[in-house]
Amino acid sequence: MLRILGKIQRIGVITEAAPTDLEPALTQIGARVKARVGELFAGSLAIRQVDAGSCNGCELEIQALANPYYGVERFGVHFVASPRHADMLLVTGPVSRHMEEALRRAYDCTPNPKLVLAVGECGATGGEFGVNYASCGAVANVIPVDGVVRGCPPTPLDLLRGILEAIDGAGVKPR
């Protein structure tokens, strides 16, 4: 236990330590996300992530949002286990034909008003896979999409920026 406490003390709070030049951008974007989530979503934006056929590269970067460098929960952004609890679907692609119906159902289960953000080159355009016998390509080919985050895969910072743009541009009325 002492070793754990020692380790915790020595590491300190790295989210504020600004170890690289990425950090100032993160802090600024994060502060704006937090402010907008506060205004538009009563302080809490619930996201349901759906992998609709991705190579799992995007998932790794979405997971990274939870590591102590980004720690997006501090900006009011939460990942939830059910689309029924979600304000936003974060969908990676390309949408495989075998995931098409599951994605539609997740979309239908998400209460209105909802936002859909298509993530990665494949989610945005179909990417390297495009449309073929097994792939529907872009997320927008299957469900309505409000915004895209480009990148292969997009970095955690790109993702956060994309989330901010989506909630900014969605025309959600402040509560």
Binding site: D51, G53, S54, P94, S96, H98, M99, A102, F129, G130, N132, Y133, A134, S135
Partner: peptide, 11 residues
Amino acid sequence: LGYVHKGIEKI
């Protein structure tokens, strides 16, 4: 499994 089959071998 098979849900993320996206035709890699074909394309």
